[in-house]
Amino acid sequence: MIAATIIGGGVAGLCAARALRDRGASVTVIDRGGDIGPHACSWWAGGMLAPFCEGESAEEPVVRLGQEAATWWQDKTGLVTQNGSLVVSAARDQGDLTRFARLTRMSESLNADQIADLEPDLEGRFKAGLFFPSEAHLAPRAALQSLRAGLIESGVEFETRQADPQTEAKAGLTIDCRGYSAKDTVEGLRGVKGEMLVLRCPDVTLHRPVRLLHPRIPLYIVPRGDGVFMLGATMIEASAGQNVSARALLELLSAAYALHPAFAEAEVLEIGVDTRPAFADNLPRIRRTGNLIQANGLFRHGFLLAPALARMIAAQVFDNQTPEVMDEIHA
């Protein structure tokens, strides 16, 4: 029986644990922070399963591999909402909407009435939009908790401690899923700062993630149910400090206000900041040196790509198959 130790209990580690366990491995997950929490970058995620929208700026593998995500998460957690995604822009930024449509696939153009049919609270606010009917979203924290619970149920062990991948690898197969914390040992990894907000705004109801295009401040807003919304997210080429900048707050809130003025009355529940791990092409990588596998660089696509990454890790471990995102292998 194959035994695997996974270091890092964020979205990459938990998905890898699920995929390896499903194929019969005995799995231990080690995380310095114990249970899912703010120390994991995925704790702050938007939870959009929107491969086609991401195609606006992401490379082809993100669009293709991301299409596995909604089914995978629904199968493992049952927490996926499949309502599509809506993209809108202010009248003065119509050109950005045209560009978005040109650079993506699987969208339908909407006029003002069709937008109102989908999201009655946005009635009269936007003249044109795009709808991506096949896309989905989930609540990331609930999904991670459910995934973890399922893993415990199926016999996966969880340990709370600091672990060194090299040391663990001496004892057996080890998968390093530590994200940006692994920066010092993962060649070419950089940090991309993200800032987000959670608001409660019972005056607005949205049924699906909405993206507001803007030349400087693109925003997405994901409904979490019960009048709660996640607003995200800045993308800054820097590793995060502890704090959100005033500018980020100002921009995110202005954009939310532009989407619907009622957001001005919202309660701010949370302000979050963290560092996304990314390689130069913003695509994830799997690397293997003997007993040590590094899986990293999910960038802003943690929930979207972790299932595909986990599948590839399992195929490497069980079938010795070289994953398409593997760039280094040393026996």
């Binding site: 950089r190 080429e237 820097a238 590793s239 995060a240 400090g241 900048s245 500018r247």
Partner: peptide
Amino acid sequence: RRESGGARAGQDFWSL
């Protein structure tokens, strides 16, 4: 300006 979130925060990008 935008990357100035602390002393060495933008280092990764600047070295690129």
